[in-house]
Each structure stands twice: as C-alpha cells, then as structure tokens.
Simulated scan of single mutants.
Amino acid sequence: MTRHIYSCPLRWSDMDAFGHVNNAVFVRYLEEARIDFMFRLAPGDGSPSFSGGSVVARHEIDYVRPLVHRHEPVTIELWVTKIGAASLTIAYEVKDPDQVYVRASTVVVPFNLEAQVPRRISAEEKSFLLEYLDDDTSGALAA
C-alpha cells in the first residue's frame, strides 16, 4: 500500500490559549492533506477525476497528544481504507517520525455540484484510489 505524504506548515494562529494546536484546526489540516491527495494527484493530465466536487459525510478524530507551535511542518500520512460505489474512507496520521498527534478518518462522497446530487466513483478514480488502499483492510472494496 502506498501512503500519500503531506507536509503541513503550522501557523501561529492555529494555537489556542493553552499553547497548542486547537482541536478544530486539525480538521483544516486533514482537509489540506485530502485536497492535496485528491486534486493535485488526480490521475491523468486534464482528467476530470475528483474535480467535479465531493462532500465530507463523516469525520472521526482521536487526539493522541498535544502539538505545539514550531517552525517545522508536521507530516500527514493518508491512505484509503474503503472504496464503495459512491463513497470512500480516508485514514490519516498527523505525526513526526517519533510520535503521532492525531489519528483520524473521513468518509468522502463524490458530488455533482451542478446537479446537487451524490455521484458514483468513476473507474479512473477507483483505479487511482486502489494504489492507496490499505492491504490489511478486510472487505474494504465494495462492488
């Protein structure tokens, strides 16, 4: 399984009154990594894959330890744990080489913004996502 690696800068404004990254800011970090994964790495030059829109149906976040401000970026690793006909689940770790700050997952639904309806995952998108599918995830590939 391949993992997508995103280097996320920390901003001074991400801190809360207790001197660490605010819990709500981690949702933005996950979004940055997910957008980098889905749009910048979408298959094919000029491919419409993932460009038609998507919506978040669910987030789950486990805060493992506080992350304090520093000048070095934090690493976000993400991979796919489930591919359905009209949704996918992405898992993340926000981490440094020696520790994990957050473990999370997001259910993403491809969405036709013009028609305002969910849509199915295309064959091209599925092929791209399969490269990042966790090898240990039993039953992660739905028809």
Rank of each mutant, 00 (worst) to 15 (best):
P43F: 03
A42W: 07
K95V: 10
A91P: 04
Q99M: 14
W79E: 09
S54C: 13
S54A: 15
E32L: 13
E72S: 15
A115N: 06
P118N: 09
E31V: 06
I90S: 02
M38G: 00
A86S: 15
A115E: 14
E60I: 07
A123Y: 01
P118W: 04
D96K: 14
L41S: 14
I121F: 02
R34Q: 09
R34I: 08
A85I: 02
D135G: 09
G52W: 05
L113C: 12
I83M: 12
S49T: 09
R65Y: 04
S127M: 01
P48C: 07
N112D: 15
S51G: 11
D45K: 11
P118I: 05
E124D: 15
V108Q: 12
A123I: 08
R120C: 00
G84Y: 06
Y101K: 05
L67F: 07
L130D: 05
D134Q: 12
S54N: 12
V100Y: 04
T89H: 06
R120Y: 00
V64Y: 02
A123R: 13
S87F: 08
G44E: 13
Q116Y: 01
F50E: 01
Y92N: 07
V64W: 00
Y63N: 10
V64Q: 09
F50W: 15
P66G: 10
A85T: 13
L130Y: 04
P48T: 09
D36N: 14
R103I: 08
V55E: 05
A86E: 10
I61R: 00
I61L: 15
V100H: 04
P118F: 03
D96C: 05
E32K: 03
P110E: 05
K95S: 13
E124V: 10
K95D: 02
F111E: 00
F128A: 01
I35V: 15
P43A: 12
I121A: 02
R70D: 14
V117A: 10
V107W: 02
T81C: 08
F39N: 08
I121K: 02
P118D: 09
M38H: 03
E31N: 08
T75I: 12
I90C: 04
V107I: 14
S87L: 08
L78Q: 11
D98N: 11
